[in-house]
Amino acid sequence: MDEKELLVRYRTTGDIEILGRLYAPYMSLLYGVCFKYLEDRDTSQDAVMQIFEQLVDKLRVHEVENFKSWLYVFARNYCLMELRKEKRQQHVDIEHNLLESEQKLNDAIEEKWSERDFENMHDCLITLSKEQAACIRLFYLEQQCYKDIADATGYDLSKVKSYIQNGKRNLKICMESRKNGK
Rank of each mutant, 00 (worst) to 15 (best):
D107C: 13
E142M: 15
K168D: 08
D151R: 09
Q50E: 10
P25A: 05
I94V: 09
Y26D: 03
M81E: 06
V64Q: 02
M121C: 13
Q50L: 13
T12R: 06
R84F: 14
E3P: 07
G167V: 08
D57Q: 10
Y78L: 05
C124D: 01
D117R: 02
N66W: 01
I109H: 09
E53G: 08
K147T: 08
L128F: 01
E53W: 09
R178E: 12
K172T: 04
I109M: 14
K161D: 02
L157I: 12
A75Y: 05
S158N: 03
V8I: 12
N66T: 12
S44V: 10
D46G: 04
D93H: 02
L38W: 15
G154N: 09
E86G: 08
V73K: 01
I16F: 00
F67Q: 02
N166D: 06
R169L: 04
D123R: 07
N120Q: 15
A24I: 11
L171H: 00
C34F: 10
L157Q: 06
W113K: 13
L83P: 03
S28P: 01
T153M: 15
S101L: 11
F67D: 07
L83H: 04
L128G: 05
L29C: 14
D15G: 01
Q90P: 05
L125S: 01
S101Q: 15
E176D: 14
E17F: 15
E53L: 15
K36W: 05
D117L: 06
D15E: 08
H96S: 14
Y31S: 08
V61P: 02
K87Q: 15
E39Y: 12
I136H: 04
K159M: 11
L30C: 05
D42Q: 09
K182C: 10
K4V: 14
R76L: 14
S44D: 12
F118T: 15
S177Q: 02
T43M: 03
T127W: 07
A47M: 00
W70N: 07
V73Y: 09
E3Y: 04
L99C: 10
D117C: 12
D148R: 09
I18M: 01
L22M: 09
C145Y: 00
Y78F: 09
G32A: 06
N106C: 13
G20K: 10
V160A: 13
R178I: 00
F67H: 07
C79T: 12
L22W: 04
R137C: 03
I136D: 11
Q89P: 05
E102G: 11
N77L: 02
Q143W: 00
A47N: 01
C135Q: 04
V160H: 00
C135W: 05
S129C: 08
K147P: 06
N120F: 13
E53N: 14
Q143T: 14
C145K: 15
K168R: 11
H62W: 03
Y146H: 08
H96Y: 13
A24N: 10
N106D: 11
S69A: 10
V48M: 07
R178D: 04
N97E: 14
R41K: 01
L55P: 00
K68R: 13
E53Q: 14
